[in-house]
Amino acid sequence: MRKSLEKYYRIDKLPHIWCPGCGNGIVTGALVRAIDNLKLNKDKICIVSGIGCSSRAPGYLNFNTLHTTHGRALAFATGIKLARPELKVIVLTGDGDCAAIGGNHFIHACRRNIDITTIVFNNNIYGMTSGQYSPLTPLGAYATTAPYGNIDRNFDLCKLAEAAGATYVARGTVYHVPQLIKFIEKALQHKGFSVVEAVSTCPTYFGRKNKLASPVKMMEMLRDNSVTVKAAEKMSKEELTNKIVIGEFLDVNAPEYVEEYMKIIKRAQGEE
């Protein structure tokens, strides 16, 4: 690790609990680099997570950190942001945490366009509970609860975010790290609800169940299956099956929830 980045970590809490070859450290590292590149005020950052392997990341990060209940990080984060708008609030969440148990909070946070950056660690599986399928597990993939292959149709989380009202949406992978850092930087600078889906790797469960047991194989899969938004535009639906479309999907402006509420306060106090 670069010496200059050490201040962002709780070095005394390392080594982390993650398996060798897990993508969680790469996503966490990308976040730290994005924060460093933007020179954000460390003391004004609050990182909130749910429950899962990925949601353990805040414990290693030297900010105000809050490890909440499964799926509910965005609800806690909404309270923090509204109570203290000067804080930069970042939510770290897993694919199950965000899209299954937390799905309702996710779409409503998108809809409100509240100024929170959400980074979804998408390893296509429930890692912490040892490999059950999630709403982002691809069709046909194997999981401990899909021993005959997954028939549960998966979400495209970025499309979901866009349709629900998020105003910055991008997808990167842990293979394309510089790009992932750039997306996180843009999300952090964005006013409104920003979502970065970071496609990650769980060699231990997703890999083992899907003939990708080595971290290298999982990385190769990300390299070989990723297509850019531009390239995807020219591809047919069939060609896009099992491909990971990476890039920025949306970057627009819309009224932000907390700013709108501050106007309500002025109106209620008769200043408007």
């Binding site: 809050l66 909404t78 309270g79």
Partner: peptide
Amino acid sequence: KFIQMEDEIASMGAVIGASLAG
């Protein structure tokens, strides 16, 4: 600040977040 959340689970979460923020 007042917010109508999407359900009671979220309401309780938001209340805890706001309290932690002071």
